[in-house]
Amino acid sequence: MRQVERAALAGLAGFVVLAVGAAAGLWAQGWDAPVGRAYMAPGTGAWLGTDALGYDLLAQAIQGTRVSLVAGAGGALGAVALGGALGSLAGLRGGWTDRLLAGATDAFAAVPPVVALLGLGLALGPGLSTVVLAIAATQWTGVFRAARAEALRLRAADFYRAAQAMGAGPGHQIRWHVAPALRPVLRSSLVVLFAYAVRLEALLAYLGASAQELPSWGRLLARSGSELARGVWWPTVAASLPLLLLVLCAQVLADGAHGWAIRKR
């Protein structure tokens, strides 16, 4: 692991600590009550200033970490679980199972993701679980393709066919052959999707489909454009800086994991 990746991992861990602390009530509890006048500049009472209603922006940004992390991790895990399971099934079974699953995935991939995301947001109502579900439901097709390609390679491998010929049961096959073969691919898609899912959550929050009961960076961003035009720059900073840092950490790790998956082959 290179130095940059170590720093990125430390950054990610920092965000997790922030989120857990905020959820446990250790800090940033004052986000749901006004602390002063509207649009107080940073440093005057509130570290990052206040928003249009006089709420503390730093507390809101810290609480927003919870939403982003849950949406990113949940969405990525869901997509990897669904795509990985279907992809390895298609690749290992082959034949008509493979043809049908691959065709169905191709058909599904043609559904425009924006339509699916917005439609699910409307149908299920705004909320964090909606975001997680929408991200998982729209992003699994890429994982399916990667897992299927790896499973096809495994299916043709001599050691795997030898294990089958010796009568290895499904449990043994999954434990010793399928899981180790798929792990690098799935791990790299997990990190890549995490970075993407965090940005998708911000987009959905901007469009009003994300969690309503907690502050999120996307909802802070939604207002920040008009505020910036009036010279109020601190809400933009409070929303975009943590988002930039979190996605940057995930992106660096994703690039590392991707290179790692290729070298491992």
Partner: peptide
């Protein structure tokens, strides 16, 4: 490229509007 990828598209648009237009 990494910087642009890490920014949400909302931020890119807001910043471009502010800096280049306003």
């Amino acid at each position: 490229s990494t910087l642009l990828l890490s920014l949400s598209s909302v931020i890119v648009v807001v910043l471009a509007q502010y800096v280049l237009a306003h």
